[in-house]
């Protein structure tokens, strides 16, 4: 299905609006709700109904990648229960505000829930049932910006030169979600000149709990990444650092602030909302950082 845009709402009058469920991720929920709020506004503007299952917490990727598989499975089962409830007859797409979380649900959940059920002494049939439930949920999960680029037409890009930004494509989105590089096309269509820094395919050093347990190496990697981002600021006039994964972005932002840099850092949804409102200027982007964008 493709959502057309017409006039102010980018929505075809006679089309029944689609509905999606939003998984905002723990990080957006707690420290960058503006990203999730922008994501809601952007979807609604395109005629997409947003449902937010309020029982949601975290996908459990932190625990899984640190080797705590049972702990991850506890959170994964919770995720599956939350997102399968009330959707039996009408399964909607689940849009995740993080490429990395989306990859976890898609690639890790089925095997994890199967294995953990067996580990907990459940019979094979029960384990297989968990696997099936996980697969059903996994099949509905998409990263937010990739879904938007694929399913919704965008308003015409404003006249004038596009706004250059530094775009960070996180490793899991890059390597585990097929065609993820297309996510940048969405931004370009909206008048955002998304540019990847040099050595873009190199990890920023976040790595989930790695950023806590190995701060030294994690930060050395961040500094390499940020040096290349700063080059984009200097050479291409990039006005901010953006991306679809708040884990990477908060890690890089934390480093920038410790080094007294005021380069704005924001989630792509915040930029898309600015574009929707025709407010895509360096000033408005700077205000996002101060929470003034809302």
């Amino acid at each position: 299905m493709r959502i057309q845009h017409a006039g102010e709402t980018f929505r075809k009058e006679d089309e029944i609006p689609v509905k999606v469920q939003l998984f905002v991720s723990c990080l957006a929920d707690m420290v960058r709700p503006e990203a999730a709020i922008a994501a809601v506004h952007v979807l609604e503007k395109r005629g997409v109904g947003v449902e937010f299952p309020e029982g949601q917490t975290c996908c459990g990727q932190f625990s899984y990648n640190a080797g705590y598989q049972h702990e991850a499975a506890v959170m994964a089962r919770h995720f599956v229960r939350v997102f399968e409830s009330g959707t039996q007859e009408d399964p909607t797409d689940i849009l995740a505000l993080s490429g990395s979380c989306a990859a976890t649900v898609m690639h890790t959940y089925p095997g994890l829930l199967y294995e953990d059920a067996l580990q907990q002494g459940e019979p094979e049939t029960k384990a297989r049932e968990w696997k099936k439930r996980a697969e059903a949920v996994a099949g509905r999960v998409h990263e937010w910006s990739m879904w938007l680029g694929e399913h919704a037409d965008q308003p015409m890009a404003p006249n004038g030169s596009p706004l250059p930004v530094a775009y960070h494509l996180g490793c899991h989105m890059r390597r585990l979600l097929p065609e993820s590089r297309k996510a940048q096309d969405l931004l370009r269509a909206l008048g955002i000149d998304a540019r990847e820094p040099e050595n873009a395919e190199e990890c920023c050093g976040f790595g989930g709990t790695y950023s806590f347990t190995e701060p030294v190496v994690s930060t050395a990697l961040a500094d390499d990444k940020l040096a290349n981002v700063q080059n984009l600021v200097q050479d291409a006039g990039a006005v901010c650092l953006t991306g679809a994964d708040l884990g990477c972005l908060l890690h890089l932002e934390g480093r920038l602030r410790r080094q007294e840099s005021s380069l704005p850092v924001c989630h792509v949804a915040e930029l898309v909302e600015l574009a929707d409102q025709n407010r895509l200027t360096p000033d408005q982007v700077r205000q996002l950082e101060q929470g003034g964008g809302k």
Partner: peptide, 15 residues
């Protein structure tokens, strides 16, 4: 382990 973050980076504030 959360303390490790603050050694080199500002800790994000809860909204």
């Amino acid at each position: 382990i959360f303390a490790g973050w603050g050694q080199t980076r500002e800790i994000p504030q809860v909204a």
